[in-house]
Design a protein around this nucleic acid. Structure first.
Ligand code: MN
Ligand code: MN
Ligand code: MN
Ligand code: MN
Lengths: 217, 217
DNA sequence: AACTTATTTTAGATTAGACTAAAAATATAC
DNA sequence: GTATATTTTTAGTCTAATCTAAAATAAGTT
């Protein structure tokens, strides 16, 4: 078994490795973990001792096979618990992340097996992120960022990048949710802002918003 | 917020104080926490600094008002989660304690409020122990230990003292569960053993077993 | 009352995980 | 290609929670 801190670092490194492909910088880890670079170095070296990451000083960090397995198992638990909170306890999708951050560390294989069954084996969490299966396989969905789409293209919202309360509430206010059909009516080259059609309504959205919406075309 | 260790010590002291009425010995705490007396002393002194217990060296420990509130809140969470595990995830009553020991430390008022509602505001956990309400009130049930009952008295099983897997499985094997009607057919003065009637069957039970069954007459 | 035993506390060490400040390595600029 | 800036690591300190060994207090016995 690994400690809470170890699990959190591994999850963090996993996400950073996904994003930028290749070794992860110590500063990036420290920043995502809201800690100092020296603390991150310390933990990275302990993880390397346990062969959960491979690490060469000044060169960055990557997860080993075992490190990936641990990270993915934690992500599976996090997302299953988020589904539970939204589907069974009627939380809003912007309220569940903090609680799932705690629940993801509960240690019990059997619990997760039963929770998965109780939830009827969901494929995606409330934010549209895929739930890894028991063996750590993650369903790869070909989605693109809304900001990369061009005028008159359309698709459905399948995920969000940001999961902060403010952002999710922004979407709620405009009735934009996972599964909502979105069409690009216009795009401004100067600042990347867009006019989009959502159901019967049209909205102006900034590039920053568009960059945080994943669309399946 | 208090640490996991602090919460566990407070819960432990609460239970010991219930049992023996009066200040709790350091050794008793150390034993229940599976740790050394010196470690217990150390934690007790920290809890005293935070005014969660009142403590006079060599004289023992009692919970303060705040200490009781924290302990009872943890017990409430523990028992609600046990109900969830048995009622919703179909665990057996002897399988839930370890997992609840972890879940009881999840920090979220809202989560517990919603869980309580989801479970339809249960009054008792799977072992027959009362679930404290939001304000920390615990329903007092007048129950007696089976070993203190005499020949030809009867009642229903409302709780168990021991919650080890072995003991609960022993009961399962004999179809004895919370709610089961039990009648004392005979009692041996020499060793306190009994013959009891459970439904259509009769069993011989030792004093040790009888001491761990709570009956409502 | 003095001796013996059991309980409890103190002293000192250890580990995980964090911090600050300083040193070392790498990257960027002229 | 040397100087400056940025990134990363090391060195040393801190706190929570644990331990062992030793000292202090309380309880029990003659
Ligand atoms: Mn989340
Ligand atoms: Mn999510
Ligand atoms: Mn329990
Ligand atoms: Mn219980």
């Amino acid at each position: 078994m690994y400690t809470r801190a170890e699990e959190n670092y591994l999850k963090c490194i996993f996400h950073l490795e996904q994003e930028h492909k290749g070794a992860v910088a110590t500063n990036a880890i420290a920043q995502m973990m809201s800690t100092k670079a020296s603390s991150a170095t310390d933990m990275i070296q302990r993880l390397a001792d346990k062969e959960l990451v491979s690490y060469r000083r000044y060169k960055g960090t990557t997860l080993t096979k075992e490190g990936i397995a641990v990270a993915v198992a934690v992500i599976r638990k996090h997302r299953l618990w988020e589904v539970f909170l939204v589907e069974k306890l009627n939380f809003q999708w912007d309220e569940v992340h903090e609680i799932a951050e705690q629940l993801e560390h509960i240690q019990s294989e059997e619990l997760i097996t039963r929770l998965d069954k109780f939830l009827d084996h969901p494929d995606y969490d409330p934010h549209g992120d895929p739930i890894p299966d028991k063996d750590g396989n993650i369903k790869k969905t070909e989605k693109k960022v809304l900001s990369e789409m061009s005028k008159s293209q359309h698709g459905i919202l399948v995920g969000v990048r940001e999961t902060s309360g403010e952002f999710l509430q922004y979407l709620d206010k405009r009735n934009i949710a996972i599964g909502t059909k979105i069409k690009v009516l216009g795009k401004e080259f100067f600042d990347g802002s867009m006019i989009i059609q959502v159901k019967k309504e049209q909205f102006f959205i900034s590039k920053k918003i568009a960059e945080n919406l994943y669309i399946q075309v």
